[in-house]
């Protein structure tokens, strides 16, 4: 265990040093990450204005708060890109990774953690500007913000494990971009990008509860908005834990079959 921890420490050290080279690039990247939420924020504010200042219980400053937390969360849950797996499999890079005495997931987790820390810092000035420009108001009590921390981390964990499990498909198909596009469109609808889930028609809300996207993104955001009752909070954490168990089982089983399937290409 101590050995594993020191491996993580070294990996993170290296990754942070690597990322420090791309400071401006990261900032521009984060700026781009804020564009889509800002567009939807403006659209919903326009709707609220047409409806007498409020839509589905969200007024202007609450909509701003929602999309600011959303911008943070979407970046915070981002996991190892499927394009990277595609590249590894197509170019035969997977061979090197598999030869190492440690499962490649550890290096990826370490990379992901350093990415999260690095990009969160780059995002802070952007979020502050957003909050000032759109006059966001954060009204949740302190304990909701406290619970937001584990909820956000669990959401990030589900996303990471689920994405790793999805990447296993690449061992058969080599290409993963169609899967990624399906994933990202589902997140747009069911993760709360298009609108806070409360604004979706009821059938879509029901589907959202059955899919992981709500528990990855929308649940932590709603928690930090202070909009959830106690039983909804408990139910949310249970759903998150169930998804972690479920995706982990799929990942472990999938990895075993997939690695046997792997035949290096190129390299």
């Amino acid at each position: 265990m101590a050995g594993l921890l020191s491996i993580y420490r070294e990996h993170i050290k290296v990754e942070v040093a690597l990322k420090m080279q791309y400071r401006v690039g990261t900032l521009l990247n984060m700026l781009q990450m804020a564009v889509e939420p800002i567009v939807y924020l403006v659209v919903w504010r326009t709707v609220a204005a047409a409806q007498g200042g409020e839509v589905g219980g969200f007024d202007n400053s609450e909509l701003a708060a929602y999309y600011i937390i959303f911008t943070f969360m979407r970046q915070f849950v981002a996991a190892t890109g499927l394009w990277l797996f595609e590249w590894r499999i197509r170019e035969g890079q997977m061979s090197t990774l598999l030869l190492r005495p440690l499962h490649p997931i550890h290096a990826d987790i370490a990379e992901n953690i350093s990415y999260k820390v690095f990009s969160s810092i780059a995002l802070i000035p952007i979020l502050i500007v957003m909050a000032l420009v759109f006059e966001a108001r954060f009204t949740a009590p302190w304990w909701a913000w406290l619970l937001f921390i584990p909820a956000a981390c669990l959401g990030a964990a589900i996303r990471f494990i689920a994405q790793y499990a999805l990447a296993m498909v690449g061992f058969w198909t080599t290409r993963l971009d169609a899967i990624w596009q399906m994933y990202s469109i589902s997140q747009t609808f069911f993760g709360g990008t298009l609108a806070p889930l409360a604004l979706l028609p009821v059938p879509l809300q029901v589907i959202a509860s059955l899919l992981p996207f709500r528990w990855i993104l929308a649940f932590p955001i709603e928690l930090a908005m202070g909009r959830l009752a106690t039983d909804e909070i408990i139910g949310g954490f249970i759903a998150q834990l169930l998804w972690i168990v479920g995706t982990t089982v799929v990942l472990i089983a999938g990895w075993r079959i997939a690695v046997k399937r792997y035949g290096a290409v190129g390299g």
């Binding site: 709707v47 047409a50 839509v55 169609a178």
Partner: peptide, 28 residues
Amino acid sequence: VQIFQSILSLIVALGGLAVVFDHTTNLN
């Protein structure tokens, strides 16, 4: 591949419109 991508982005565009106009009859 292109048809697939175009259809997905069309779904997002139309879905966005549908959800928005579920709550209002005009946008600005």
